[in-house]
């Protein structure tokens, strides 16, 4: 099974990944193979099965109190920023 190239392009743009033209085919095939593998799940009758959406946890109502604590020092937070200017992160100009 192959995933349509248009699908591959769409998924890549959603994920902000760039797929070379040359590689489109490879992705089509590989993704297709994995999806085919995943389609095994269709063998099961899931008609009445509840969706286990909260994963492995049976916890609920985990909260914290509304308390203000000191924030991190700005220099510490910005330490890893690839580009910063006057206390802010920098991105290419955005026109809204």
């Amino acid at each position: 099974m192959k995933i349509e190239q248009s699908q591959v392009k769409y998924v890549a743009s959603l994920a902000r990944l760039r797929i070379d033209e040359a590689e489109q085919d490879k992705w089509s095939e590989q993704m297709g193979a994995i999806i085919e593998f995943a389609d095994q799940l269709n063998e099961l009758d899931l008609h009445d099965a509840e969706s286990n959406e909260q994963g492995s946890t049976s916890l609920y109502n985990v909260f914290r109190e509304d308390e203000r604590k000191e924030s991190f020092d700005r220099d510490k937070i910005l330490f890893n920023a690839p580009e910063q200017y006057e206390g802010c992160y920098v991105v290419p100009k955005i026109v809204e």
């Binding site: 200017y85 802010c88 992160y89 991105v91 290419p92 100009k93 955005i94 809204e96």
Partner: peptide, 15 residues
């Protein structure tokens, strides 16, 4: 928040 007039050719981000 995005700040658009702080630096030429760029936008700045405040979290």
């Amino acid at each position: 928040k995005l700040i658009h007039d702080g630096l030429r050719g760029a936008s700045l981000v405040d979290y």
